[in-house]
């Protein structure tokens, strides 16, 4: 049935006619807990949460996965994911994940961290976990702003970008430059896979999911650290509508943080 048919017969359809098993094209993963999200409308976190849970369910690895939540907007990530999780101190997720993975090497471990957590206060932990080639996945949400504390400059804030602590735009002569941490850790021999995706269009959402799946596969093969940077929107702190914020990703974020693989395992080159 296409959209046109549906419109034509709109008045004749009742919900019970449409909601039948044979029309089912998508089902929310059971591992994504069905409660209200605390995220703002239009925020990308919910999408990435869903993608993670979809992949974990489709790969049938619920009993193997242990997640680590950060401090930041996604501090409550564990409220929505029906898997074992630990909540780390600010910036320390990769150290916590190191502790977990080292004592449970057969389990699959991921961290979920924002830009402030991963690339400011936790930079040392991030770089050293990557440099040891810790065999886990780092999901890095880059929205170029501190969300939870309501809009301060992040290490990834773009030059000229207005935040509550750069009210006249980020002046790189004072605050330094946005940190491209993905490009930085890609240099380290222990790191096997680094890619940058986004969740502002359907196609990019699909590519993000694919990257998550690949990263878990690499982890099963003990290939080393995987880092997926996801460009995500923050309509509330960017002071934009969700649509405007998607446009901002396309026009401002992607030119500075280009999408695509930064490092792939050797045999795939």
């Amino acid at each position: 049935m296409d959209e046109k048919d549906l419109k034509l017969n709109e008045t004749e359809f009742l919900n019970e006619d449409i909601c039948v098993a044979e029309y089912l094209v998508y089902k929310k993963p059971e591992t994504l807990i069905d409660i209200d999200l605390h995220y703002c409308p239009g925020c990308g976190h919910g999408v990435v949460h869903r993608l993670l849970m979809e992949v974990i369910e489709e790969m049938n690895i619920v009993d193997k996965v242990i997640g680590v939540a950060p401090v930041g907007c996604s501090v409550f990530a564990y409220n929505y994911m029906d898997i074992d999780m630990q909540e780390a101190a600010h910036g320390r997720a990769t150290a916590v994940a190191t502790g977990i993975k080292r004592v449970l090497p057969d389990k699959l471990v991921f961290t979920y961290q924002g830009d402030g957590d991963l690339a400011a206060i936790g930079t040392a932990e991030t770089i050293h976990a990557c440099n040891r080639g810790e065999n886990f996945l780092i999901v890095f949400i880059n929205n170029a702003v501190y969300g939870m504390t309501s809009g301060q400059m992040a290490p990834t804030t773009l030059p000229g970008m207005v935040t509550t602590t750069t009210p006249f735009g980020r002046d790189t002569s004072i605050t330094g430059f946005p940190l491209k941490i993905s490009e930085l850790v890609a240099q380290l021999p222990g790191v096997c896979y680094v890619t940058r995706t986004s969740v502002h269009t359907a196609g990019n959402v699909r590519r993000t999911k694919k990257a998550i799946q690949k990263a878990f596969e690499y982890q099963m093969q003990n290939k080393g650290t995987c880092l997926i940077e996801v460009l995500s929107n923050c309509p509330s702190n960017w002071k934009m509508t969700p649509l405007e914020s998607n446009k901002f990703i396309e026009e401002e974020m992607i030119p500075f943080y280009p999408l695509g693989d930064i490092k792939v395992p050797k045999e795939e080159k």
Partner: peptide
């Protein structure tokens, strides 16, 4: 036993958090 030299005491105490949270003697 897992024995790992961490990059700092901040990292080592948080590795303890992870390993202890995973049910191990850390």
């Amino acid at each position: 036993m897992v024995v790992l030299q961490a990059e700092s005491e901040i990292a080592s105490i948080n590795m303890i958090y992870g390993a202890a949270g995973a049910g191990k003697r850390a």
